[in-house]
Amino acid sequence: MEEDNASRPAGHGTLLCVKSWTAYLNVLLMAVLLFGFALPLSFRHSELAAGAVMAVSAVLVGYRVLSIRSVQLYYDDVGVWLYSGILPWTRGVQGVKWRDMDEASFVQSFWSWLFRSYSIRIGHRYTKASEILLTRMANGKDAVARLNAHHQKLIRDNVIN
């Protein structure tokens, strides 16, 4: 996968994957319900109500799209990291250091194979509370392979025990 420096926070390592297009299906359903049903119903009440429904709907749909777009899985020389969040109080990074990583795995099903949208897990050797669990990740299968290969290389080179 080619690195895209503009699509991730500055100073971070190699981008592995982001959310798949299938992650946006719930947002699409919400947009259809809000703009297709709630907005026309609100016009029956008043134009002011319709304006309020339109504004709230646009903010909700926009926030969900930006939240999904903010999810980025990457790795650097220290470990594997998940960046997510758009608002200052939701933005953050969680991760697993290479020395504490157990293994990376993905869930294979007909639908994940068909849509190339995988659920992935980056395990922590000592605690399940610190592992990274992600659903609907584009190229998740390739990301898992890259992570496991890099982890094994670090072990073989005696960089980690």
Rank of each mutant, 00 (worst) to 15 (best):
R8F: 11
Q152I: 01
F115L: 15
P40C: 06
L34M: 14
R44S: 13
A23D: 04
K19E: 04
F110Y: 14
V56I: 15
A23S: 14
F35V: 01
A55N: 06
F106G: 12
L60G: 03
D142H: 12
M54H: 00
V61Y: 08
P88K: 06
M101H: 06
S130T: 07
L28R: 03
S105G: 15
G92K: 01
I68C: 08
G140H: 01
L15I: 11
D142F: 04
V27Y: 07
I132V: 12
V144A: 14
F35M: 04
Q94H: 10
V65E: 07
W81C: 04
A31R: 06
E47A: 06
M101G: 02
I155N: 05
G92T: 01
R8Y: 08
A104Y: 09
H12F: 06
L33I: 02
M54R: 01
M54W: 02
V18M: 14
L41A: 15
G51T: 03
L39I: 00
L29E: 05
W21P: 08
T14A: 10
E47M: 04
G11R: 03
A58G: 06
G85P: 07
R99M: 06
S119G: 13
C17K: 00
A49R: 01
R116I: 00
G62K: 08
E2H: 11
E103Y: 12
T135M: 10
V32M: 14
D4Y: 11
D157K: 09
R125D: 08
L16Y: 12
A10S: 14
G92C: 05
Q108V: 00
R125M: 15
G79K: 05
H45P: 01
C17Q: 03
L34W: 12
S109Y: 11
A49W: 02
G79M: 08
H150L: 04
T90P: 05
L28Q: 04
M54V: 00
P88Y: 09
L82A: 07
L48P: 00
H124G: 01
R91P: 00
V93I: 03
S70C: 11
V56R: 06
A6P: 01
S105L: 10
N148M: 01
H150A: 12
S57V: 03
I68H: 08
L39P: 02
R69L: 12
S70K: 12
A10G: 11
Y24S: 03
R64Y: 10
K128A: 14
W81N: 13
I120A: 09
L48C: 00
V32K: 05
F35Y: 15
N5K: 07
E131I: 02
A52I: 15
L48M: 06
L87H: 09
T127Y: 11
L73Q: 10
G95C: 11
L73G: 13
S46V: 01
S7C: 01
R116T: 01
W111S: 15
H12M: 04
K141M: 10
V96K: 10
S84P: 03
H151N: 13
S130D: 11
M30V: 10
F106C: 14
W89I: 12
M30Y: 05
L87E: 09
